[in-house]
């Protein structure tokens, strides 16, 4: 029950080596072992998407992933999204400007989901964005501010208008 393994992961560019119980989820490992509490748990059964991180550049549910499965892999969490301590990523800025967050609990998962999506789809339609975040539950916003933010961020990332 408490078998352990040693794993090495790179999280937001920083390398970690830790001994973990094999049953510990990646979400709990990030939050409790590494202290990266920006990744949130909303349902722990893979539906709400709050715990979404990127594993080797692909979005993944950290509540349904075991920490040992991430051995040797690259992880990005919400703490690694902003370019610096006093700058936000354009998607983060857009979420604030378009009121795409209220309580903010689902926001980290939304960010990591949309960052992957915008990498693959630099010029998305509103319907594309709605589909992309259909695996993320938000109880506050009705998603509209999130969709508007994603459209604005996409434009900004393409080098279009500033706002």
């Amino acid at each position: 029950m408490s078998a352990t393994r040693t794993i090495s992961v790179t999280v937001n560019g920083k390398a970690y080596e830790r001994e973990v119980e094999v049953r510990v989820t990646l979400a709990d490992f990030l939050r409790q072992e590494l202290g990266l509490t920006g990744t949130h748990l909303g349902c722990e059964h893979g539906v709400c998407g709050a715990c979404t991180i990127q594993l080797n550049g692909r979005s993944a549910r950290s509540c349904l992933t075991l920490a040992v499965q991430a051995d040797g892999q690259e992880i990005k969490t919400v703490e690694g999204v902003a370019p610096s301590a006093d700058e936000l990523h354009p998607l983060q800025e857009a979420l604030s400007e378009h009121h795409g967050l209220q309580c903010g609990f689902c926001t980290p998962g939304i960010l990591l989901t949309l960052l992957e999506f915008l990498d693959d789809n630099p010029d998305p339609s509103e319907a594309d964005i709605r589909l992309a975040i259909s695996g993320n539950l938000c109880r506050c916003t009705g998603y509209q501010g999130i969709v508007d933010a994603a459209l604005a961020a996409a434009e900004r990332l393409r080098g279009g208008a500033a706002k």
Binding site: R31, L36, T37, G38, T39, H40, L41, T77, V78, E79, V81, A82, L88, Q92, L95, S96, L101, G104, F105, T107, P108, L111
Partner: peptide
């Protein structure tokens, strides 16, 4: 409220 929420720096109860 937004910057700390967007950076994952907010402190929710489980944090």
């Amino acid at each position: 409220e937004d910057p700390r929420l967007l950076r994952g720096e907010a402190r929710f109860i489980d944090d």
